[in-house]
Each structure stands twice: as structure tokens, then as C-alpha cells.
Design a binder for these strands. Structure first.
Ligand SMILES: [Mn+2]
Ligand SMILES: [Mn+2]
Ligand SMILES: [Zn+2]
Ligand SMILES: [Zn+2]
Lengths: 157, 157
DNA sequence: AGGCTAATTGCAACAATGTTGCGTTTAGCA
DNA sequence: TGCTAAACGCAACATTGTTGCAATTAGCCT
């Protein structure tokens, strides 16, 4: 029923919601999975797998790091968690706009990355943040998809 | 003259441009730095420090990995290169919109991260990409700056 | 051109992060 | 209350990133 690829991520999900989704998808609800869910729920900022481990350890709960990696992988596949960033590499600057606004497109097929400029987008993005009480100093945006070439290869002209 | 914090990144910079900037800022133009610049110039996708190392090794050029880390750090400080992503951690999903559009604000001071939704922004972003021949399937956007609380602490009401 | 010196690099040792294969445990179910 | 596939723990390993210090070198000054 719930088609994974199209489902938006969980709205301010509490642990219980996530557990229901695990079950709905036929995954077991294990103690380690509950514990990682709680650690994520409790965190105010992004946490690495080892962060999760030490958080839990402080509560007297011992999970092997391999287990945490596997659980976080699963949660990401189920849209219960995000990895906050995508690629990890360096890239030369492309066409420059304002310092502090960097906007990329990455082709998921061939991997080419292109930086582009959109002043209007930049302003809208900041304004949108202001409405939420956030003072923006820096944008980083990645769109992933297909470059024109890879798109052509798949779907023709 | 050239104030670093305000300078936009290099426009389709060739190695020579970057070298001029190194000199202008009083940094030495060394063989390793030239080589890393050339490796970045030559790459079609983001590259890790170790990627740079092996690329160079294939050309019979041997740089210690520590050197490469330090050079890439410098280049980023000088806006000669980007790290393509920011934090590296996991975060729970916040308010969900379309699957495939994730938009965050991160406070550079306290680290809180908040996901938010902006349909209009999402459409504009895709349209902007289409104009460049790119078919977008997924957005990831991070704005960094100050959350309302940290902003107040610094600049009052 | 040759020497001086602060900046930069190389090296060694280490720390942190991430992966794989396989034996053991356990959640969910009959 | 057992059965079994799924999930976990462990060991061993691979990759990535960091630190302190000795050796080298780019840029400058004779
Ligand atoms: Mn840029
Ligand atoms: Mn999301
Ligand atoms: Zn492509
Ligand atoms: Zn803050």
C-alpha cells in the first residue's frame, strides 16, 4: 500500500509513528531499533552513527557500531531519517554569484556537477527562512536528477 | 583589497586564476598546490582528498595525504574549492512535503537544524534547472545562519 | 646567482570512521 | 512454547582524517 518512493518523510514523527512504519513494511521492531529511534528523537542536531553509540552508552545501553550503521541505513531507506548531506567531495567553484550562495545540480547517473546562479531563488530562500525566524547567511543547495545528456539517453529527444 | 569574506567564488576559474589569488593573499605557489589545482580542474565530479592523491599518483606525482588535506583546507578558506556538503550527520525528518524535497536551516551557532517546506521554492528551483537542461528529481537545500534565539542573543530584539 | 628563513611539505604514529563475513540471538508467528 | 528467518554482535580489516616534528623549499634579500 504505502509506496515508499512516493511517501513524504514523517511529519514530526514520534518514535511510535516510526515503529508503526517498520511494522507496516514487515521489519521487526527490535530493541536496538527502538533505542536508535529514541536517540534520534532526543538529539537536537544531526548525529553520526558513533554519536548515537555514545549517547546510548551514557544511558547504559550498548550497541555495536555495525548494528547502528545498519539501522541508520534502514531508516534512511524508509525515510525515517536523512543523511544531511549527499556526496562528500570537493569541487571547483563554477560561475559565481553572491558569496554565500552556492547552488548545484548533480546528475545521479553520470555524476557531473554543475554550479549555477539564481538571484531570485536566493532571495526567496532567505525570505522563506525569515518567516520562520531564521537569519540566513549562507545557502547550499543540491538538486539531483538527470543532466540533459543522460536524460536523452533514457527517454530520447 | 580583495576582501575574502565578500568575494564570490571564482568564475570558471582556470588554474592560473587560482594561482594569482594564492599570491595576492601571500601564500606560496608550491608544486603540490599546483598539482592539486590541476587535479581539481581535471575532475568532472567532486573528489575526495584520497581521490586527488590517486589521480596524481597515476600521473607519477606523489603527494602525502596529509599535504592534500591541508591544501584542500586552504583552498576552501580561499574560496577556491567547496566541500560539497556540510555536516555529515543524521537527523529525523521534520515536517514533510513532497518526497524528494528536503530543505533545512542550520544554526551555525547552536547547531539546531530545522526542516521546512516551501512548495513555491521547490517549483522555482526545478524550473531554474530545466532552463539549464537539467531534469530534477530531488532537492537538498541547507541554509546556514542564525536561529531566532541565537540572533537575539547577539543583536538583541 | 647564492644564501636566509618562514612557510610548507613529508613522515610516522595514531585516531576515528566505515565495511564484511559469519556465528549467535531474538522477534514474530504457528 | 518451540521454529525460523531476520537481525544482531563480534572480529578482523579497510578507509579516512589528525597531530607533532623534522626536512625541504619558495620567495626574498643581498
Ligand atoms: Mn560557488
Ligand atoms: Mn524530509
Ligand atoms: Zn548525466
Ligand atoms: Zn542557534
Amino acid at each position: 500500500m504505502l509506496r515508499l518512493a512516493l511517501r513524504p518523510c514523517i511529519i514530526s514523527s514520534v518514535v511510535q509513528d516510526s515503529i508503526r512504519i517498520l511494522q507496516a513494511q514487515g521489519y521487526k521492531v527490535t530493541k536496538p531499533r527502538r533505542q536508535v529511534l529514541e536517540a534520534l528523537e532526543g538529539a537536537q542536531k544531526p548525529v553520526s552513527p558513533y554519536d548515537v553509540q555514545s549517547t546510548l552508552r551514557k544511558q547504559g545501553k550498548y550497541l555495536n557500531h555495525v548494528t547502528i550503521y545498519r539501522i541508520l541505513d534502514l531508516f534512511c531507506r524508509l525515510n525515517l531519517a536523512h543523511k544531511v548531506l549527499s556526496s562528500g567531495g570537493f569541487v571547483k567553484c563554477g560561475l559565481g554569484n553572491e558569496a554565500g550562495c552556492h547552488r548545484f545540480m548533480v546528475c545521479r547517473c553520470c555524476g557531473v556537477l554543475r554550479e549555477f546562479v539564481d538571484e531570485e531563488l536566493c532571495k526567496k530562500e532567505s525570505k522563506s527562512a525569515v518567516n520562520l525566524g531564521f537569519h540566513t547567511e549562507y545557502h547550499l543547495s543540491e538538486s539531483s536528477g538527470l543532466c540533459s545528456e543522460c536524460y536523452r539517453k533514457r527517454f530520447g529527444e
